[in-house]
Design a protein around this nucleic acid. Structure first.
Ligand SMILES: [Mn+2]
Ligand SMILES: [Mn+2]
Ligand SMILES: [Mn+2]
Ligand SMILES: [Mn+2]
Lengths: 225, 225
DNA sequence: TAATAAATTTAGGATAACCTAAATAAATAA
DNA sequence: TTATTTATTTAGGTTATCCTAAATTTATTA
């Protein structure tokens, strides 16, 4: 029940999914840069995806692209595999969390339904990837996403890190060294009015950490008590 | 140190390796049928592989194709991955042995050196795949192959099954039901002069088994004492 | 609103792999 | 050895995916 779509198409759908989660259509140039392609190639491909029967995307020229129900299902299937594979690489094969995204992006297109089911089972049906990204269920329902950004916290607030961005290995190595990892508790000590820098006290760490808004905007937390 | 070759090329090299192990060049039509392609496509591709710099194969028109040293190395690298993956799928993910070949044939082209090293380590550097095929070492040296065919045994000889053909799921399921699996001991009770059928008594099995030469030619054993 | 800039699409081309069918070479049979 | 069959190669064509550069549309600025 699937596997008729190329790796190329699967990656398009995945990226369109991510770009349209906020409700706005995905635009050509961002898609192109994320996929490492030229805008012209993307225009051509999304027209094609919207012209297949049944169509995988809705596409209005110059307006952007969104997923059809089918396209969304296919995107979620790939995303489930991607995140399960990331978890598997860390938990079973001992990968560090900065090395799993790239490898998962290849494996996600070739593993079978059985492979997916087996690793899910071995891992105990995990709900989150090593970076804290929610893993779609078998029925492709997507768990509630985290919405509170670390960057939105005010001084005095306590929170638990839930999710960090997964695709920049260098950033991930840095976050690991400063102990910014899912489930870590923290308190905001200070917030700069000028540059939005946050001073954080992290559970079990003697040194405080100062992080700028470029990073804190991409980290999700839940607020405590 | 690799990964510049397409999946297509890797599969060509692997099949050429298998067909040339016996010392004779691989011919176009057999390659085509094994790869599921038309002979014309194979002619074109092997010319291409022999024309690259450095070349991956030696090719003489109408005479057949062999691997260069580089082509052989690349074939062995893929074969190592293939067999490690097969072992991993059985040992870690609980696959049955008839389902691993096909999945390994996809995964072998996308996993990284790190993945290969990790599963080798998790598995304790296994020397044989679930079907008993020898796994090339990290340095790509190929262990000694089994040479004695079950079909060559004479009545009264005792032997241990070592290797069965890996790519026919139906045959594998059958072999499993009749307990023809690596490390199983057996005695040849009878050999038919007419059709070459062997009657076998298998360790721990009450029923004897009769197998024709089409199968016994493809199963390798070591003779006991 | 007119002019300019930026984003997007379209046109024309390239490449890797495949295919079918015709042409050619090699192997086999008479 | 000649005729026939079989294997192989070659020629011409297709598809998916990408690219560059020109054309077009939309957005921004003055
Ligand atoms: Mn990821
Ligand atoms: Mn991918
Ligand atoms: Mn195999
Ligand atoms: Mn393969």
């Amino acid at each position: 029940m699937s596997e008729n779509q190329s790796q190329t198409i699967q990656d398009y759908l995945k990226h369109i999914y991510n770009l349209t989660e906020n409700g706005t259509p995905a635009n050509t140039s961002l898609l192109a840069s994320q996929l490492g392609l030229k805008p012209g190639s993307v225009s051509e491909m999304v027209s094609r995806l919207s012209a297949t029967e049944p169509p995988l995307v809705n596409y209005i020229k110059y307006q952007g692209v969104t997923l059809t129900t089918l396209g969304r299902e296919m995107a979620l299937r790939v995303i489930r595999r991607h995140r399960l594979i990331e978890t598997f690489l860390v938990e079973v094969l001992g990968y560090s969390w900065d090395m799993v995204h790239e490898e998962a992006c290849e494996l996600e297109h070739v593993v079978t339904d059985i492979f997916e089911a087996r690793i899910a089972s071995v891992l105990g049906n995990p709900r989150f990837s090593p970076h804290g990204e929610p893993i779609p269920e078998v029925d492709l329902s997507m768990p509630a996403q985290f919405t509170t950004k670390l960057g939105s916290l005010l001084p005095g607030q306590k929170a638990i890190i839930q999710q960090v961005p997964d695709s920049d290995p260098e950033l991930l190595r840095y976050l690991r060294t400063i102990a910014i990892v899912p489930q870590k508790e923290l308190v905001v000590l200070n917030r700069s009015n000028f540059d939005g820098n946050l001073t954080l006290s992290l559970q079990g760490q003697s040194e405080n950490i100062i992080l700028g808004p470029v990073i804190t905007k991409k980290i999700f937390v839940t607020i405590m008590e």
